[in-house]
Design a protein around this nucleic acid. Structure first.
Lengths: 336, 336
DNA sequence: CTGTTAGCGCCTTCAG
DNA sequence: CTGAAGGCGCTAACAG
C-alpha cells in the first residue's frame, strides 16, 4: 500500500480512501491511484484488515459429508447467497463425529469467521453452544432450533414422514419398514414420528405395522442392501420400505434387484431428499423432496442478517413435498 | 493473550512459547498457562498470526460446480488430505464463468491463502497465470499441465475416450454420438480425441461414424434429453451414445425412456465419471470411472508439497477404468 | 481533499 | 527459562 502511494505520488491514507471511500477522493487522484495499484500489482491484505476490526467476509460451513449430493446442493445455495454479499465459504465435513465437529468449529473461530452454519453431528446441541465462544453467530442448518439462542433453518420432518407413510398407506400397504442411520439421527427420529402419526390416524398399531432398521455408517447404501435379507425373510415382511434418505433407497433398490424382488409389484420403496438422480433410478424413485438449495440460501440469509442492528433470532421451517414416481404402487393381492 | 498471561501470572512471551514451542517451557508453568487459557476462553487470532508472517492454513479450491456430485467426491479427497495437515478449505464454484473465476481467485489471494487448487473455467490457462500474482502456488485440478509452470493432477482423458469407444465398437456399433458441453470443454475435447483414435484404429471414418452434439449449459441433463429428438431422427441415427459425464447420461436415459427407445436393445449409452448413482440407474449405467477421491487427495498433496524446500512442479496422471454395466449391449441386427 | 499517526494481536529477537 | 520491545498492513481519527 505504501508502494502504491509512492507510485501514485500520494500518501497511504489517500490510497486507503480510494479503497474504502472512493467518493471522497478527487476523480483525477483516484484514477492515478488505481493505475498505480495495477502497476504495482497491489492485492489487499484481508488479514491486516481483519486485525484492524473490519468484519470478516468468510463464513464457516460445517456439514456431515460433502460427498453426499444432498449437501452439495445445500452448499450451492449457501455459496450463491454469500457471493451476493461478497462472502466466501470455509467448508468442513464432520462425518457426524463430535470430535471433528468441535475441532473444525475451533479452527473456524480462530480464523475469526463472520459466523458459522452448522448441521450438528449430534441430536443434542448443548455441546455446540459450549464449543463456540460467544461472539461468533451460529445458524443451525437442517436442524430445529429447540429453544436454543440462535437462528435455525429446518425442513418439516414430521410432515415429511407423514407424506411418505400416507402415500403408501393410501396404496393399501399395512406393513412398513423404516430404515434410518445414526447419520442424521435427529431428522430421522422426527420423520419416524410423522410415520407413527399417519399409522395411528389410519387406526393401525405401530408395533404391528412398523419395523425399524438401523443402518450402520458410513456407507448407508451398502448397509441398506445388506439389511434386506433379514428384513424380507419371515411371514410378516414389510411391503413398503421407507428410507431416511435417497442414498439408502438406492441401496434398497440395488439389493432388491439382487434378490429378484420386483419394485413396485412386490415391494414399494420411498426415499427422502429427492436428489438429482432419484428421478433417473430404476424404477424412478418415489421420494420426499426437500428444498435443498433454498435451505442453504435461507441459512446464509439468516447469518448475514445477524450483523444487522435489529436482528432477532428466528427459525424458518421449509415444507417438503411428496414426489410420487415408479417405485411405489398398490399392494399386491395376497393371493395373487 | 495478555489476559491469559495475567491470569497465569506470567508474561505474554511465555504464553507464546506455550503455543509455539511447548518444549521450552517448564511443565509446571505450561500447565498453569494452559489452565488459564481455558479459564479466560482464549482463542488464537489467526489473522494476527498471518499478518506476522506465519504461513496460512487455508487452501482455496475453485471448481466448476459444487452441486455436481463429481466435485463433491473430489472435495472430500481434498478436505481429508488437508485436514491431516491441519488445513481448511475455502470453496468456490465458477459455473465455468471466467469472470467468477477471476474474482474468486482475487478474493482468495487477498485472504492470503497458502495456495489454490483450480479446475480452470477455460481451455486456455494463460488467463489463470495472469490473474494470480506470483507468490500464491496453484495446482491444476482435473486439467493437464500444458507446460505451465505449476503442478497438475489429471485423469487420462484420451484413454477414457478410447475405453468408451472401444467398448461400444467391440459390441458392433458403428455409428456413435458424442455429447459434450462447454462445461469441461478441455476434458471433453481430449475424450473425443480418444474416441477418434479408436475409430481410426477400427478402420472407420470419423466423419461417417461420429456425430457431435453440444449441450448448452447450465442444465446438461435437460439439454441432453432435449437433444435426442433431433439426434435420433433420420436414417443414420447413432446406435451408441457416449456422454462427457454421467449427468448428461442421466438426461439421455430419461429422454430415451420418454421416446420409448429401449436401452440397450435399441441404443447403447455410456457415461463418464461413475458417480455414485451410476450403478443404480435404469438400466445400470456403463461408464468410465474416474478416481475422484484420489484426484482430490493427490492435488492437495501436491499443493502441500509446494512449501517444501526442494519442491519441483510435476504432473500426476491418474488412469480411468471402464465399468461395463447394463446400458450397453450388442448392436441390434439391422433387420431384426 | 490530502497527510500524519496510533494501534489491532501476535511472533520473534534480545537481554536478563 | 522469562520479560520487554518492534513491526507485519491496514484503518480511522484528526490536522492541515
Amino acid at each position: 500500500m505504501r508502494q502504491v502511494a509512492e507510485a501514485a505520488g500520494v500518501s497511504v491514507a489517500t490510497v486507503g480512501n480510494v479503497l474504502n471511500a472512493p467518493g471522497v477522493v478527487a476523480p483525477e487522484t483516484r484514477r492515478r491511484v488505481e493505475l498505480a495499484m495495477t502497476q504495482v500489482g497491489f492485492v489487499r491484505n484481508l488479514a491486516a484488515r481483519q486485525l484492524r476490526g473490519v468484519p470478516s467476509s468468510v463464513v464457516g460451513v460445517v456439514i456431515l459429508d460433502l460427498a453426499n449430493p444432498f449437501y452439495g446442493e445445500i452448499g450451492r445455495g449457501i455459496e450463491d447467497r454469500l457471493a451476493e454479499a461478497g462472502c466466501l465459504v470455509m467448508l468442513c465435513s464432520t462425518d457426524a463425529d463430535v470430535g471433528k465437529e468441535a475441532s473444525h468449529l475451533r479452527m473456524l473461530e480462530e480464523h475469526g469467521v463472520r459466523g458459522v452454519l452448522v448441521t450438528p453431528a449430534e441430536t443434542h446441541i448443548e455441546m455446540l453452544t459450549r464449543t463456540l465462544r460467544r461472539g461468533t453467530p451460529m445458524v443451525l442448518l437442517d436442524h430445529p432450533r429447540d429453544g436454543a439462542d440462535m437462528c435455525a433453518v429446518t425442513v418439516d420432518n414430521v410432515l415429511g414422514g407423514r407424506l411418505a407413510a400416507g402415500h403408501v398407506l393410501s396404496l393399501g400397504h399395512r406393513r412398513l419398514a423404516f430404515l434410518q442411520s445414526s447419520i442424521g439421527a435427529r431428522q430421522s427420529t422426527q420423520r419416524r414420528d410423522g410415520i407413527l402419526r399417519e399409522l395411528s390416524a389410519a387406526g393401525l398399531d405401530a408395533a404391528e405395522s412398523l419395523v425399524d432398521v438401523d443402518l450402520p455408517p458410513p456407507d448407508v447404501a451398502a448397509a441398506a442392501d445388506a439389511a434386506l435379507d433379514e428384513l424380507l425373510s419371515g411371514p410378516r415382511a414389510p411391503t413398503a420400505i421407507l428410507c431416511f434418505n435417497d442414498v439408502a433407497a438406492l441401496g434398497v433398490l440395488t439389493g432388491l434387484r439382487r434378490l429378484g424382488v420386483h419394485v413396485p409389484n412386490d415391494v414399494s420403496v420411498v426415499g427422502y431428499d429427492d436428489i438429482q438422480f432419484a428421478a433417473g433410478l430404476s424404477p424412478a424413485l418415489t421420494t420426499v423432496r426437500q428444498p435443498k438449495y433454498q435451505l442453504g440460501r435461507a441459512a446464509a440469509d439468516l447469518l448475514l442478517d445477524e450483523s444487522r442492528p435489529g436482528h432477532r433470532h428466528q427459525e424458518i421451517m421449509l415444507q417438503p413435498t411428496l414426489v410420487a414416481r415408479g417405485s411405489t404402487g398398490p399392494i399386491a393381492e395376497p393371493g395373487a
